[in-house]
Amino acid sequence: MLNLIKYEFIRKYRLVSMILITMLALNLFLLTRGVGGSMLFLVLSPIVLYVFYLADIIKMYSDDLNKKTGYMLFMTPNSGYKIISSKLLAAILEGFALVLIYFIFILINGTYIIISAGNEIDYSQIIKAVDNLLSGSLGFNLGHVLVFLLAALAFLIAFITTVYTAMTIRKSIFSEIKFGGLFSFIIFLLINWVLSFLSSKFYDIITPYYDTVDTISSTGRVSAGGLAMILLPMIAVLIIQAVSLTGISGYLLEKKINL
């Protein structure tokens, strides 16, 4: 599986490099516009990175399913489960890499903003200030942020697996339907509708038990642990969804695919 993941990145490194070089050039240009330019970049760049990320992970799988270059992957002696799992892991790793790159952009621009204000840079103080800010004025701390990030990661994985399953269903069971992209989108909506229905039934079952969980402190705030308890059912549902959909995609790639 490592080889499959490795080649996912080898195939896309030129495109990703071009995007990043372009963004770096744009950042440098906006830095010449002063603090305002830097802030504008920090607001716009995550949107650009997110849109690129979604387009890229969908296109990579779509190309393998719909173009002849997909034979390079599907002729290899790898099971459908391994292929879809490697796609998913590569997508997750790419997401982490782009988040890391955004943090680097924050460091660059944050440093510029601080220096522009005539201050000196002390990164430990910055981290402390961020933590104080969150726990002080906003009512939550880095622990809460980590729980949110975990929930966001579970949501992202569930979303990717839903998209991939829709595409796999279209290329296996409905391989002869025209307008494949549109049909994949319709299947995606249907899967989401079914999963929402099943999730709501699940929440109906567990809610009575959760009503008894004491997550709110005497100060009226939710601790990081309490937040984790609140989000746990959603995270569990998303993980079960992701695992199930990956299994379905793997089975279809194994037994039903028609390239």
Partner: peptide, 21 residues
């Protein structure tokens, strides 16, 4: 026939399937 069979079969498609870049 399964994915394991692909280890024994070397198939050359008629189309150009090689990664262009």
């Amino acid at each position: 026939l399964s994915y394991k069979s692909k280890a024994y079969v070397s198939y050359m498609p008629t189309e150009n399937y090689l990664y262009e870049n």
